[in-house]
Each structure stands twice: as structure tokens, then as C-alpha cells.
Design a protein around this nucleic acid. Sequence first.
DNA 1: GAAGAAAATTAAGGTATCTTAAGAAAGCTA
DNA 2: TAGCTTTCTTAAGATACCTTAATTTTCTTC
Lengths: 191, 191
Amino acid sequence: MLDLLIENIKEVVPLTDEDASLVKKAFNPVQLKKKDFLLRNGEYSDHMRFIVEGCLRAYKIDENGKEHILYFGIKNWWINDLYSYLTRTPATLFIQAVSDSTVMQIHRDQLNILYDKIHMIDRFYRIKTQNGFVALQERTINSMSQSADERYYDFVKKYRKMEQQIPQYMLASYLGITPEHLSTLRKNLTK
Amino acid sequence: MLDLLIENIKEVVPLTDEDASLVKKAFNPVQLKKKDFLLRNGEYSDHMRFIVEGCLRAYKIDENGKEHILYFGIKNWWINDLYSYLTRTPATLFIQAVSDSTVMQIHRDQLNILYDKIHMIDRFYRIKTQNGFVALQERTINSMSQSADERYYDFVKKYRKMEQQIPQYMLASYLGITPEHLSTLRKNLTK
DNA sequence: GAAGAAAATTAAGGTATCTTAAGAAAGCTA
DNA sequence: TAGCTTTCTTAAGATACCTTAATTTTCTTC
């Protein structure tokens, strides 16, 4: 499990063996059963989290009680309520296991120590966050310029693997439409 | 102009005088008249850019020829087509001056040198990007869970200053609605 | 493998936002 | 200040997507 994490980092920045060993010591595993919560609205998010196995979703519940999924995460992805983590305020997001999952997490205090000791850790999270920003921006553009069926079609094309792991009503929530509407879209697409 | 830039960095990370001097040498000014482009679709985005004065917008034109504004930037903000910058692919965004503006920019090659020399520069962009990510995520949530008039109301409340600098049709584009619709929303709000 | 729970489908009526088009207001430039 | 261009408004008809509710299908659990 730790090896996957170190590999993930080394794909982006170099680490000495000593660095890698420091990193390994700082992370702890969390096991989640399907539907378990990694984080709930109102709790503090004091960890950065890496998915070793499984599938999770980050979502928000609005004032009308509706769920809005912000993103999914699978093996090798990072997932968090970054706002809550950075500002040390209670989480506004829920993070829940879509299937049985394993996550490696590091406490903020530990990570801050690593930032100071290892220049490349700062760089790693810079690059990861930049990539995440770009992906989120892409999504923002698409949700502004495309219709629901185009967004659905693109999602399936891009994340076929993920699409097979998650129920349709979650995909609908991610796409910003109702499950009923997604259902009729699918019917019309296969016609 | 360079002082504003250094101040902006020092608000987030410490810099020695020597560091600051290296940073200063690496940035160059760009003057823009209203409606001038800092970047156009198809060009390469080889610089990171900091706004010293004025107001700019980053937008995309979709396949139907419609503009979608991703964000505005004012004094003290960073603005770029980060995707293009990071992947060295032609820009998909336009960045244009909404009013006469001054921008300080650094070439990727120069910035990469700074990253290696100054740990704190890696950290600075990590933190800036994390903040940007969080802001973009906030926007994504709002566009999924709020109606157009709520989004308009929130924007005005949050960015009163900016709202006064930009024409309404740009605000409509940012909010993801037509200028006609924004116009009717405004009429109904003040009633 | 039966019973209950969760998810997906279908369809009818409703609403937010869009499209088109035309006219009014405001902002530049000579 | 006049004339031209850009921006904003108004309104009517169109459409994408929503809401509600009932039915069917699939998944879970004992």
C-alpha cells in the first residue's frame, strides 16, 4: 500500500530513499466499507488522503437537501475537502466510500514537517494541485458550454472504468442533472 | 510594480532579500490597453502572470461561437491559461484586458530556475494554486446548486468592486446565463 | 432463494432559461 | 455636439431540464 503511494509521488518528483522512508512513516491506513464515511459535513478535515484501493465520492448537500457530487476518486487519486483542510474550518463536504476502499492519510502537522524537510514534497503538491485545478477548470467549462447529453457522452468516453463502478444516480448528480433525466437521455442515445 | 509582486509573495511565504532580488529580475512588465489580448486561443502560454493594475478576463469560445468567461482578475491576482502553460499545448482560452492594465510575467524557463533555487517559490505556487482550486470548487458547487438569480445576488455581494468595472454582458457570461436573462433578473430583483 | 431495499425507468405537466428580434440607452470619437 | 457603436432592455415563443409519482428492475441480506 505504501509502495503505491511512493510510486505515485515518484512519478512526479524525485525522492531519495531517506525521503521515501520519512514519507512512509507519516502516512496511516484507513479501511472503509461501502457507504462508510471518510469525512462528514461539520467534521474537521485534518488529513491529506490518497486512495490505495476502491472508489469514493465527495459531495455536498445543499439547503434543499439535495446531493451534488463534486468528484469521484479511484485508486491512485487524492481526495479531500481541501477548503476545510486549508482553513481549518468544519467540512462542508461529505466523502464516502462508493465501494470497499483503502485510503492512506497524513495529518496536517506531519505534512507540514515534511514540507519543511523535503523541498520535493512542496513541489509534488504544487504540481498535483495544478493538475487538479486544470481538471476542475475543464469541468467548469464543459458544464457551462455543453448540454447534459454531451456531458454524459464525454464522461462515459473518458471514464468508462469509473462509470462501471458507480450507480447511475450518482453519475447524474455529478453531471448536474436528475436521475430521471439521465435515464431518458440514455434511452434516446441508444436509439 | 515589482514591489507589489514581492509583497504578494511575502504575504504567503518568507523571502530573503537575495531571493526577492532574483524574483524581481525574472519578471517583465506588459502594458495592455482596454480590449488588448494577453493571450489568444491557439497561442502558446509560456508565462505565469500577475496583475499589477487593471482588470482582465479569461474566457473560452465554444464550438457555437459563444463566449464563456471562466474568471476575472484584478490587481494582485494571478491569471493564466494554466492548462496550456503546464502541457505546452496551444491555449484554448483568451485572456483580454477589460480595462487598461499592467501585468508582470515570468517565462516558464525562468520560473523553473526559481523553483530549483528557492524552495519557497515552490511553496508559494502550491499555496496559491490550492487557494485557486478551492475558489474554483466553490464556484462549481454554486453553479450546481443555485439558480441564476442567487448566483447573481451572491456575485454582487462578494465582488461589488469588480461588478462596477465590468459590463453586464460579461457578468452574464461568467454566471452562465444570457445577457437578456440577466436583464430580466435584475428587473425582478429591484422590484 | 425469498423478501425487502435500493436503483432505474417511464410519462405527464411545470418552470427556468434560451432564442430571436427590435428598440432604447449609454459610451466613444471626431 | 452629432453620429456611430456598443451595451442594455423588453417581450413572445421555444426548449432543456425538473418534479412528481407510479412501475419495473436490480441488488442485498438473511
